[in-house]
Every structure is written in structure tokens, then in C-alpha cells.
Design a protein around this nucleic acid. Structure first.
Lengths: 348, 348
DNA sequence: CTGAAAGCGCTTACAG
DNA sequence: CTGAAAGCGCTTACAG
């Protein structure tokens, strides 16, 4: 019967509106009025009710009220992030939480850094808690199941990714242009052999970064050799990939790493290969302390905070009735020159 | 009446158990049985019900079921973290989420990096969502209001902090011993003027670190001068504090920074003062990329993942009926020598 | 200004 | 194996 109590103590049951009403000598409707701050309750009655509320430590059961209520009072939105470890996700989460707080809502967060099965379970669990909106990053490609939810009124916003097979809002960086900017930066310094180190090739944002990079090279008449185009890397495999590059016949003079943790791996790989000081490196997406490394790391900085703010606001607009066609918002990125990207090619 | 629909589309109302029952030609109790996997339903009936469920895209309303049910099916626990930006919090959160998933629960996360008022609001909001357990880090000193919740069956576990004025479980690093270890490490290398840079002086863990540090110095006959004991720092103010130290008459030869972001500030300050290569530095709590800095940063590493796992498991043990006296778990920390802490004092 | 009745969507307790 | 009734804690719609 009883749930667990305070350690070593006794659990008193939560009191109900009925008990408060009885103690105050009024109808439950009157208690309801007081709790909801409705007008037309006499001061005397109000204070009698409040006294009973205090005496019984009464707290309304939100599930029960939302059950009958037409519009929900206790809003919860869900945030599904790709990987917890990434500083991008952290900033994103903070921004989403801020907007939710402003809207009187709370955030259920879950990471997807496991498998697709896990993604499915998590979404089911969120739906089971009546999550009203879903901000979703780097999910599996099949979003079909999300459509059903949308049709039932759930607001779905894709963050750092495109909506594939679903008509939904999306908020992400201008990945293509950012990657092109990085490529141009290296080309302008005279680099011609620029390795591309990419993250997941099955995900939209990394794909766009590859595209932007290759397009810019092509504009300069460069056809990227396959051995300098490496994808599906994480931090660990990036270390090995860089080692392999510099053990090969024709090593690059510059590297564009298209994801922040891949950049960390690239730095470690360059260092181990003894190439850190003489190989140019531009990374996509910043990481704290990149500015303190030697050389400091030049990056195309995106704005995860802004992405989170825009995406969360969009979700609440949808919840508040906005039914305009879905929009994709591309946020600008910025090249931050810190040193690593300004290393020139060897003189030979 | 209608909530927002999919952008540009139509919202179909969520269907109820009654509609499913009508379509399947059975009583709602039978639908309930099928949905909950109860035995004693004929195969024929089961498939008729399942068909109706599919046709109507029915999903049970969890709030309604938990309302009548004795034991809750949809568990939610709350995690209140001090600051989102800190890698410690990120690791902690990830671990808590993992345990919650294993237990079929979800995590409501909120940061407290604003004011005490915000802390109160957040807790209220979590309670309003029937959060069953609360993992709480670095809260305000007055925990009185938590006792009330505990008495109503909420499991409260303090993470990275002691339970003050409340009888509750707590999980944290052995801050005092860790700080003593750091002090001894610097003392053994011959340092006698060791500045202490501390974080919030009103919070338990930083206090313990100061205590452990000062005790160890005292054991070596050193009485810490006030000007070398600076507290209530964050990253920015730590930068200035270090600048001030080296502008003073009697600068330290070593620094112990008692919190990870303070350590980042200390590094920046040392660099600006041109003292980075010749001043020993040991930080409490690790940060990604500390190993890549030059010199790499020696730290007393705590284990936020383990803290999160232990704390979350404790919470679920409480929820599952454990009513043994509250325990405080101190987790060991480890000195990681990377270079910055092994710099000796100047020869003079 | 206040209250009695019906109902939200589901489960319990009971009967068949 | 199946179902009708009562009830979870609250709000709505209505009456006074």
C-alpha cells in the first residue's frame, strides 16, 4: 500500500481536495476555486480553505486536473539529443530549458547515443508522459512514426537536422556554407591537399558539410581524392585516421574536420604524428578550451544556444496554435581564426 | 477546443478506450486487459481489440491510469543540477539517465544556475508533475521544504553535497581527502607558498576542499596567509584573482584551484601573467582537453559518472521501499599527474 | 458567492 | 474468459 517514506520515517499519504473541503467545511468546488485563483470567493472562505491546505499540506494532483481540463496546465516538452557528451548538446539543452521555463513548461531530456531501438523506446516513454512537443536531433532516418504523433497534435521540431519524410519545422546551422567558408579559408592560404574528416555520413548536417566542402574545392578546380575524404569518424577513429594519413605517400597539408569531437581526435592524431605545428586545421563547431590549445584551434563556430532558443520558441508557437507551413531556419556560422587554420603549406 | 495540429494539417483527436471498445465490440475492461497484457483474454478477442487499437491509433492515457492505479506505472525522477555548462553536470546527467532508463523511468532536468527563487519554482514544477524522486546538487542552504516532500514519500538524494537539516542520502567525492592529496603533492615538490582558489564558500563541497587543503598545510607547519586564500570565484573572477596574485609582492609558486572552471580561469590568468610554465597548478575535478594543454593540467579527478550512478540507484532503492537510515557515500578521487602540478618552485 | 452532479480516461473489485 | 459498476482527484457546466 504505502510507497517508501523518508528513510527511517513514516509516510503520510498525500491529502486530497475532498479532505481539504471537509476540513474547511466547504464544497470541493470551492477549494478548486481557491487553488486556481478564481474570482468570487469571499475572503473569509478563502482563508479557511488556505488554512486547511496548510494544515494538510495539500497539493493538487496535476494529472487529475489535466484529465478534465480542456487545455493542459502542466506542459512538458521532450528534448532528444544525439549525444550527451558533446558541448553542442549541453548548450542546446540549456537554451531549450530557458525557453521552457519562460513558458512555464518543463523539459524531459533523453539521449539517443545508443541504438535505434532505444530511440523508439524513448519516444514511446515521452509520449506516455503526454509530452506535447518533441525537439529531436540526429534521429534515425525513418521519421514515419513521428507523423502519427504530429497528426495527434504533437509539435515536432528538428534540431540540427532536416525533417525527412515528415513535414516539420527544422532549425540548424548553415552547414553547407560554413564548410565552404572553411574550405575557402584553407585554399586561400595555398593549401591544395586538404583532408576531409567527417562524422556520421547518414546524418543530414555532416552530409551538408561534406557537400559544402567538396563544392568549394570543385570551384577551385580540385577534385578530392578518395583517400582524403574520410567519414563516419568519432574521436577515437579520427586519431587513427590522421595517423594513417601521415603514414601514407601523399599526406595532406591541411585538414578540415567537420565535427567538434572529430576535431579533438584530429588534434590528438596530429600531435602523435608530430604534425600539429605544421598542418593547418579548421574544425566545424567549437569546443571549450580550443582557444587555449597550442596552436589555438580555428573553427567554424555555430551557435547552439541560438539554435536551441529558436527551436524551442518554434515548438511553443506550434503548441499555441500556429499552423503556418513548416519552416526550415538556417542560422549563420562564423569563422574564428585562432592560429591552427592559418598555418600555410610547406614551401616545397 | 482543438489543440494545434501538424503544421498546415488537421488534428485528429486522440481516441479513448471507450471508442476502441465500441469498435471492437467489447467492454472497456477487456480493452484494458489487452493493453496491459493481462491473462484470460481469448485470442480472437485480443486480435479484434488490437485491430481497433491500430485502426484508431489508440494510446492509453497514462495520467488516467496512474490516477486509479495503486502503484505508479510511469515513473519520473527529477535532477536538479548546479550549472549546465560544467562537464561535471553533463557526466552526472548522463549517468542518472542511464539508471532511469534501466528502471523504466524518465528524468526531468533543471538547472539551478539562477537564483534561489528559481530553485523553489523548479521544485514546485517538478512536484506538480508527480516527480517521485529528487536528485539535487548545490542547492540553497535551507532544505527545510524538502523534508515535507520526503514525508510524503519523495526520495531525496543529495549529489555532490551534504544533506543539511534534512535526513537524506548523499553521494559525493571525498573532497577533503582529495584536496589534502593535492596539497601534499605540491608540498612534496618543495612549494611553500600555495595559493588556494576556491569556488562558492557557501556550498559544502568547496568548503570541504578548503578544509582538506588547509589541514594538510597545517600538518606541514604552514599557516595560509589570507591573501593566498581566495574564494567565491568563477572562471572570470579567477582570471583576475591570478593577475592580482602575480602583481603582488609575494606571489605564490603554486596554485591549487578547487573547482574545474576556476582551474580554467587560473590557466588563463597564469598565461596572461606569463607564469603558466613556471607556476605549479593542481586543479580539483577534470575537464576535457586538460590533457592537451601545454603544460597538461594535473588534477584531482573525481568520478561524476560513478556519483550519478550511485545516487540514482539509491533513489530507486528508496522508491522500491528501502527505509534503512540515510547514508552518505564518499567516493574516492585520484591524482592525475600530467605536468602542471609537477613544476617545482624556483631555485632561489 | 457557493455547491451538487456529471464527467475526464482509465483501473479496481466484484460478479458472472 | 468477459463485463457492469464504482472510483481515482480533479474540473466543467449548471443551478442557486
Amino acid at each position: 500500500m504505502s510507497e517508501s517514506g523518508p528513510p527511517g520515517g513514516v509516510t503520510s499519504e498525500r491529502s486530497t481536495i475532498r479532505e481539504v473541503a471537509r476540513r474547511a467545511g466547504v464544497a470541493i468546488k470551492t477549494v478548486s476555486r481557491v487553488m486556481n485563483g478564481e474570482p468570487y470567493v469571499s475572503e473569509a472562505t478563502t482563508s479557511r480553505v488556505m488554512e486547511a491546505v496548510r494544515a494538510l499540506d495539500y497539493r493538487p494532483h496535476p494529472g487529475a486536473s489535466d484529465l478534465r481540463r480542456a487545455t493542459r496546465k502542466h506542459r512538458t516538452i521532450g528534448l532528444m539529443i544525439g549525444a550527451f557528451g558533446n558541448p553542442f548538446s549541453t548548450e542546446l539543452q540549456r537554451a531549450v530549458e530557458q525557453v521552457a521555463t519562460e513558458q512555464g513548461a518543463m523539459v524531459l531530456t533523453a539521449s539517443l547515443d545508443r541504438d535505434a531501438e532505444r530511440e523508439r523506446q524513448t519516444i514511446t516513454a515521452m509520449l506516455a508522459r503526454r509530452t506535447e512537443a518533441l525537439l529531436i536531433t540526429t534521429p534515425t532516418r525513418s521519421h514515419d512514426y513521428l507523423r502519427e504523433e504530429q497528426e495527434h497534435g504533437m509539435a515536432v521540431v528538428f534540431v540540427d537536422g532536416a525533417a525527412i519524410g515528415v513535414s516539420a519545422d527544422a532549425v540548424l546551422s548553415d552547414n553547407r556554407r560554413g564548410a565552404a567558408t572553411a574550405a575557402r579559408h584553407l585554399l586561400e592560404r595555398g593549401h591544395r591537399r586538404i583532408a576531409f574528416l567527417g562524422a556520421r555520413s547518414d546524418v543530414h548536417s555532416p552530409q551538408q558539410r561534406r557537400l559544402g566542402f567538396l563544392e568549394e574545392l570543385a570551384r577551385h578546380g580540385i577534385h578530392q581524392p578518395a583517400k582524403h575524404l574520410i567519414e563516419d569518424l568519432d574521436e577515437e577513429s579520427a586519431i587513427r585516421a590522421v595517423a594513417d594519413l601521415f603514414a601514407s605517400a601523399d599526406p595532406p597539408t591541411a585538414i578540415f574536420s567537420a565535427q567538434n569531437l572529430v576535431t579533438v581526435g584530429a588534434i590528438k592524431g596530429l600531435r602523435r604524428a608530430g604534425q600539429l605545428a605544421r598542418t593547418a586545421l579548421v574544425g566545424f563547431d567549437d569546443v571549450p578550451l580550443f582557444d587555449l590549445l597550442e596552436p589555438a584551434v580555428t573553427v567554424v563556430r555555430q551557435n547552439p544556444r541560438e539554435i536551441g532558443l529558436v527551436a524551442a520558441r518554434r515548438a511553443f508557437e506550434r503548441l499555441n496554435g500556429d499552423s503556418t507551413p513548416p519552416r526550415t531556419v538556417l542560422l549563420p556560422v562564423q569563422l574564428i581564426q585562432r592560429g591552427s587554420g592559418e598555418i600555410g603549406p610547406p614551401d616545397d
